[in-house]
Structure formats: C-alpha cells, structure tokens
Design a protein around this nucleic acid. Structure first.
Length: 367
DNA sequence: TAAACGTGGTG
DNA sequence: TCACCAAGTTT
C-alpha cells in the first residue's frame, strides 16, 4: 500500500465531507448519476459558472433555469438575438458577462462545431472565460486536474495555512497551494467541495469551524482567529455622482426608452433619457438636459449603489401629446405594460417605479 | 497593475 | 444603518 501524501489526504478529507453534504443545484449532476460516470453538461457548467461570477447561488438559480428553457443548447444561444439575451440577463448585473456570453456561444457554435474545448487553455481563449472559469469548466465538465480558485477557495486556503500576505498580491502563491492539493481523481468534485466549504462552513464571518473537515489542521483556527483571514488590501472610498432621469409618458401609455452604447457601464442595456452622471449637477438646471421641452414634474430622488460609486438621480415625469415625435436616434416609445420584456437594469427599474409606481408588479422591490 | 464593472443579501 | 462581499474578467 502506498503511503498517502499530506496533500492527497487533504483532498480525501474534503471529498469525504462533500459526499456527505452534497448540495443539489440545477447545473449539477445528481450523486446517483455521477456514480454511474455521468458528467455535467459542459453547456450547463459554463452557463452557470459565468452567471456565478461575483454572484450568489440564490440569485443565479432562476436566471439559469430561464436561460436553459429559452436556449436549451449553446447553438440555440448562439442563434438568439443579442437583445433577447440582454433582456433575459437584466437584473443579474455585470452586463459585460451577457455580451461575452453571446460572443462565446457564437465562437463555440461557429468555430468549434458547437462543442466546448475540453482543456483549460482552450476554454480560456473564449470571451468571458478567465482563470477561474476555464479551470472550473475543465475540472467539472471534463475531469481535468485544473486548479480552481475563486473567492471561497482563497478564504479556505488563507485560513488553512494562515497566510498573512494580503490579497490580491498573494494569489499566485495561493493558487500554487490549490494546485498542490487538487487530486487527479475527482478534480471537479474537489473544486466544488472547496467552494461549497467556503460558502457554507468557512464563511467570511462566524465560520462554523466545529463542522469543518479541516478543523484539526487549520492554522487560523489553531491561533483562534479564523476571521482575520484572508488579509486584504484597503479599498478606496466610494464617490457620489448626481444626475437627472426623465420618464416621458405619451397619450398611448408608452414611455420613451433608448439603448445605451455597447461599452462601459450598463453597456447595451436599455434606459430612460438621463443627464450625464457627474460629481456636481450643472448649475442645478438639470431639466435643461431633458430629451425635449415639456412640463417636467419632479417625482423624487432614487439612490443606487454601484461597485465603484453611488448614484443619486432626480426623477422627472411628463405627460406629452400622443403625436410627439422624437429623433430617430432618440430611442423608441414602449408600452408601460411591456416593460418586463425590456433589458432594463435595476437602476432603471427604480427610476421608472419612482415616476410610475404601478409600472412593475414588484415596484416595492425598487425602493 | 489598478480600475471598471451590478446587484442583493448579511451581520 | 452600512460595510462587506459573492463560483471574476477585461482593459
């Protein structure tokens, strides 16, 4: 009998824990099917992993099911109008992911015969797939011995070895540790187990160390300070930006919408006309930036917090004549009853709900 | 390398 | 309330 190395014993401990605490998720193969050698569908794994970037499992579940119902295969997604994909993604955030999702599906359909590359390197060439996602898909869908490291894994590793160096600088060293621990057998389960452990046991605050399979080996716990890890670099303060948004309603019960440019913040998503979002309002005459002259009524202020700034928008509403025309580049009139089908990011739903409280079934959510 | 990039849940 | 932060990638 070969002597087990220390590294493989960590993997064995974790996999034993995983087999007892496996979570049912829509994109996972059930343990019974996995026992028969059935691997998860690469399309499902990829779609879920992209959605899960910086996003919680709870938020992703309904979106994943919706996408799978609308586009059962990667070739279906490749053939879909990009507007439909953006509308389906609306509310999930980080919209560059949706734009890249579409590009990636097209690349797989048109350049790879509808089949995902089965290596980390091949996957990483595709749009929207970086270090983490390429490793995750390679390990989970293709059984490759890839080192998968996300925020959960960083936390587990940093505590297990009490790594004092701050993130993100120590990432390469931590990734080397993960590579050392990743087993040749069941690398995909190992990766998912590490992430599950970080999500459910080795949590950022008040980790449940009593339930952790590593609690006899964790250096952070041995020093009685698991919450001190991972050490992170200080972040910058969040500035405030101001602006005004204009909800125009015509006699047909339609509102004026327009499409944002494809790049940058909320790229390719739908919005109502707004001023620029700047540190100061221009002389307080923000109504002069309205899309046209009308009897604009102030309805209130909405606040929305983005990753790197807080936005406060004065929301104006105006009732306009039915025959009002706008320039061809100024957007289109959309029935208020059809807003759910639009690619409206949450901040814009807040704006519209402020001006028209009955606009959405769940308008309360946007206050 | 550091900044840009959304949203919702949590303690 | 509010800072933190989540299965990161791109530029």
């Amino acid at each position: 009998m070969l002597q087990k190395t220390a590294s493989s014993s960590y993997a064995q401990m974790l996999l034993a824990w995983y087999d007892r605490h496996h979570r049912e998720l829509p994109w996972r193969t059930s343990p019974a099917m996995a026992a028969k050698g059935k691997r998860a569908d690469p399309y499902h794994v990829w779609l879920s992993e992209v959605m899960l970037q910086q996003t919680t499992v709870q938020a992703v579940k309904p979106y994943f099911l919706k996408f799978l119902a609308a586009w059962p295969s990667v070739t279906d997604l490749a053939a879909a109008p990009v507007e439909d994909v953006m509308a389906a993604w609306a509310g999930l955030g980080y919209y560059a992911r949706a734009r890249n999702l579409k590009k990636c599906a097209e690349a797989v359909a048109n350049e790879h015969g509808g089949v995902f590359p089965d290596t980390e390197e091949g996957l990483k060439q595709l749009p929207g797939i970086g270090d983490y996602t390429s490793a995750a898909v390679a390990a989970i869908a293709f059984n490759r011995q890839a080192a998968v490291m996300d925020g959960n894994v960083e936390r587990v590793i940093s505590r297990l070895f009490a790594i004092d160096a701050p993130l993100p600088g120590c990432k390469p060293a931590m990734k080397a540790k993960v590579a050392e621990l990743t087993p040749a057998d069941r690398p995909g389960d190992f990766a998912q187990a590490m992430m599950d452990l970080g999500a459910t046991i080795c949590t950022p605050k008040r980790p449940a160390c009593a339930l952790c399979p590593f609690n006899g080996h964790c250096l952070a716990l041995a020093h009685d300070e698991p919450e001190r890890f991972p050490v992170k670099a200080a972040k910058r303060a969040k500035p405030v930006r101001l602006g005004a948004a204009f909800v125009a309603v015509n006699a047909s019960g339609e509102i004026l919408l327009r499409r944002r440019i494809d790049s940058g913040l909320l790229g390719g998503m739908t919005e109502v006309p707004t001023t620029a979002w700047t540190a100061r309002l221009d002389g307080g005459t923000d109504q002069s930036h309205a899309p046209f002259v009308a009897d604009w009524q102030a309805t209130g202020v909405i606040v929305h917090v983005f990753t790197h700034f807080e936005l406060r928008l004065n929301v104006y509403r105006a009732q306009v004549p039915g025959g009002l025309q706008t320039g061809p580049d100024d957007g289109w009139w959309e029935p208020v009853t059809n807003l759910d089908a639009q690619a409206l990011p949450t901040v814009m739903k807040k704006v519209i709900a402020q001006a028209i409280p009955s606009a959405f079934n769940e308008s309360r959510k946007f206050r």
